[in-house]
Design a protein around this nucleic acid. Structure first.
Lengths: 207, 207
DNA sequence: TTGTATACGGAACGTCGTTCCGTTTATCAA
DNA sequence: TTGATAAACGGAACGACGTTCCGTATACAA
């Protein structure tokens, strides 16, 4: 066996653990599908056709369904993929920038993620069981990322320490869906303002 | 060029204004379709099939498409229908109850509306052009209703006068979509609390 | 009652998500 | 290197959907 492995909880078909490894061409197609799907979803929205994705990935339809049980699973996998990318960006930034700068930069990165996923956010609340686990995954990956950045910045005295990481994530997400057509620019400004607000309280101690 | 007339802005096919009136059987079918669609949407969600609705309404598919250009238009028409019903309830309550009681009762009526429309709310943000006009219609009908109730109650000294009607409508709508599974009961309690909050400030004057 | 614009019903079309299966290929043991 | 075989591939085919089309039925004005 490869590992203890608590259920993949991934949308992908488990690789029938045991004998052979995953074939190289299969892995190549999975990566290609995820990459293509991400591009197509970004360009044409989450309602893009399975056929379109398969074609642009240079792959037959059957291949898509070999790796993903259904369309929703592909959407969910892309979502997880981007959550991972966003979460990973946090540690990279933390290692290469001063604490408050890392925080501010990552917040903008997070805004990009939220704005790009607006179409999917609508689908999330539509009751497809394939999406049930996504909010939990969102919290699981993104909360620690934000928490680490906040704590580091707070320890350096650059930011107040009384802010709950997940509250902040949700607040920013709300700011990014203004119902009005303020667009991404407005959202970015509001979030920048929020980060300044975090910095402001740092010099004091109490409330 | 058939007419001057500022577009129906209704989802329905305009009755080719001019010669004849709408045929009686046609009107009967339209009413039946709206009623059936409302029931089916409530029971099976907004993704219910056109065929199912047609069948339960005792009507052919062609008849549905004679009166509604597409599925989305039927959904939009049902939505408008229920917005109207909710708005009309306000004036009825205002005429039959004391001001603050009318307000409190209508708020609960509004909660019922919002909760029932949760599934549709997701579809609203999915970019279907048939739904573009719905938020405006929502505001156009519901804001005056709420405003009238608020002003009457405020004039009677039962409620504070510094609350924007539309802000309140939106706030209640937010309370009714808790992401968690608090359900309708929790939403009702929160809104009741909110109404009590309105009443509380009435005895004072300033902030 | 009759003429006709209007409305009706449902077969048929194109597209979608998904399944199925004959064919191709990567991998491993010999 | 070669052969055996599990794995992956491609795309035709299926059922369900939204929508269109058109021959038939019917309400209404005369």
């Amino acid at each position: 066996m490869r590992e203890g492995i608590p259920d993949e909880e991934d949308g992908r078909v488990p690789p029938s653990r045991g004998k052979r490894r995953v074939r190289a061409d299969a892995q190549r197609n999975i990566d290609m599908l995820l990459h293509t799907a991400r591009t197509v979803f970004a360009a044409s929205g989450v309602n893009a056709t399975v056929r379109e994705i398969a074609e642009k990935a240079g792959v037959g339809i059957g291949t898509v369904y070999r790796h993903f049980p259904n369309r929703s699973a592909l959407v969910a996998a892309v979502f997880r993929h981007e959550v991972d990318a966003c979460a990973d960006a946090a540690s990279v930034l933390a290692a290469t920038h001063p604490p408050d700068e890392a925080l501010a930069t990552w917040m903008q990165r997070y805004v990009d993620f939220i704005v790009a996923k607006r179409g999917l956010a609508a689908a999330l609340h539509a009751g497809d069981p394939a999406f049930d686990a996504l909010p939990a995954y969102f919290e699981k990956r993104l909360r620690p990322a934000m928490q680490a950045l906040l704590e580091t910045a707070a320890a350096a005295g650059k930011v107040r320490g009384d802010v709950d990481p997940y509250d902040l994530l949700r607040a920013v997400a709300s700011l990014c869906t203004p119902d009005r057509d303020g667009g991404a620019a407005q959202a970015r400004r509001m979030v920048a303002l929020m980060v300044d607000g975090l910095r402001y309280g740092a010099t004091r101690d109490g409330c």
